[in-house]
């Protein structure tokens, strides 16, 4: 088999495997989504030091999980459930910050950092006019 043939077969096999994976991911997970677990992981336990209510064994946290389960069973949306808790404990009770004017910097700074970094890297490339006449 020539190197070229090997290369083509390599690409085909790789593409095939990727297709299987992508289709599988689109069809989706066979497990159920657990709203209580995912919401509970984003609500802080007020009497602990930074733990989420689903992770903390404290009585307060467990009571809040019970309240959370009731709200989920009532069919409230994610935001409504978060609003219930922030109305009583303040915004700091959430572990996942919303995208608001106040948290703009929080999301923007990493993007600025990536942009700045990419620009700095690109600016380190050898400028084309200096390459002529050189042997690399």
């Amino acid at each position: 088999m020539s190197a070229r043939t090997r290369q083509i077969i390599g690409w085909v096999v790789t593409a095939g495997l990727v297709a299987v994976i992508v289709v599988g991911m689109i069809i989706g997970d066979t497990r159920d989504e657990d709203r209580v677990a995912s919401l509970g992981a984003a609500i802080k336990c007020p009497v602990c030091q930074g733990e989420a209510i689903v992770d903390s064994p404290s009585e307060t946290a467990q009571a809040m999980v019970v309240v959370l389960e009731e709200k989920v069973a009532e069919g409230l949306s994610d935001e409504e459930i978060f609003d219930f808790f922030t109305a009583r404990y303040g915004d700091g009770i959430r572990l996942d910050p919303r995208f608001t004017a106040q948290t703009l910097l929080l999301w923007a700074l990493p993007i600025v950092a990536v942009g700045g970094g990419v620009w700095m890297i690109l600016s380190r490339r050898r400028r084309p006019e200096l390459v002529s006449g050189e042997t690399t």
Binding site: P46, A63, V66
Partner: peptide, 13 residues
């Protein structure tokens, strides 16, 4: 007894 009231009032401790 069931810690409902402390949640209603947002009690921290």
């Amino acid at each position: 007894s069931d810690s409902r009231t402390i949640i209603e009032l947002g009690v921290f401790g």
